[in-house]
């Protein structure tokens, strides 16, 4: 009994230190802002920001922004996932095509695909469409690359086993290849979702008519410092929660599959 308690305490100390660090940092900022060392025009006291957060979160403006951003992220992810999976499968089925396009796909990682945003704005107008296109194109890259690597990594004995057991083509695909590839495909999907979210918020920030990213820039431009910080905080918290939740999910799926 006491050993398990000691062990769980030993496992908990980094979390305690992390909470302490974050709380200490917030406390220090609170002191510096309350005592006037930091002007409230630069940084309002953290308690004021958190108080504002309590006002913002139930408000209609926030819920509309959140809904708009969520719809954009999910549609971009859905499009990116479908195209990415298809590209990954095509590159695996047709190795020559894969070898031709792969360097371009990899270098799109580093390409500021985002600079196409003004072009897409000109083409598609100030709507969700240009954001979805950019975010989907960012999401599809890790999904395509991981799918291709996952399928290539499957040992050829597995489908052979299926053939010797008289599996149909469909059974080989759905019962053998898909489960075998899942542990490597899922991290690609997770990364793709995160890229879709980063791309969406960043594009909204540059130019949009609503959304969480847009609201941050909007409050910056209207000098509403407290609202601006509250929105930065809420956007960060959402991103952190999504990240942690997806990583847990990924670990769980990989553990179940392997």
């Amino acid at each position: 009994m006491s050993t398990t308690a000691a062990r769980s305490r030993a496992r908990a100390w980094p979390a305690v230190a992390q909470v302490g660090l974050v709380a200490g940092g917030a406390g220090l900022l609170e002191f510096l802002t309350q005592s006037g060392y930091i002007s409230p025009m630069v940084l309002p006291p953290p308690t004021e920001i958190v108080g504002k957060l309590g006002e913002i979160v139930p408000s209609n403006v926030f819920l509309d922004d959140l809904g708009s951003t969520a719809i954009t992220v999910f549609s971009a992810f859905a499009i990116g996932a479908i195209i990415g999976l298809l590209i990954g499968i095509a590159f695996w089925k047709l190795p020559f095509v894969g070898a031709v396009f792969e360097p371009y796909l990899v270098s799109m990682y580093s390409m500021p695909a985002l600079v196409f945003y003004p072009i897409l704005l000109a083409l598609l107008g100030l709507s969700k469409a240009p954001i979805v296109v950019i975010a989907a194109s960012m999401a599809l890259i890790p999904i395509a690359l991981n799918t291709m690597v996952a399928l290539r990594a499957i040992k050829s004995t597995l489908p052979k086993l299926g053939t010797s057991l008289n599996c149909t083509r469909r059974q080989i695909y759905w019962k053998i290849l898909a489960p075998a590839a899942t542990p490597l495909v899922v991290p690609g999907l997770v990364l793709g979702f995160i890229y879709a979210m980063i791309g969406t918020i960043a594009m909204e920030f540059i130019l949009a008519s609503n959304g969480i990213g847009f609201r941050i820039g909007y409050y910056y431009r209207s000098f509403d410092v407290v609202d601006m910080y509250a929105y930065i905080l809420v956007a960060s918290i959402i991103a952190i929660i999504v990240n942690v939740a997806l990583n847990r999910l990924e670990r769980r799926i990989r553990r179940d599959m392997q």
Binding site: F205, Y220, A235, S236
Partner: peptide, 26 residues
């Protein structure tokens, strides 16, 4: 490592650009 790595990795999905207004006010 055990203290800071989870903190840094946890913010992986936060678009850094949303901190730009903070730098602009500074």
């Amino acid at each position: 490592n055990r203290i800071f790595e989870p903190l840094i990795a946890g913010t992986f999905a936060v678009p850094r650009i949303i901190l730009y207004p903070v730098l602009l006010t500074l």
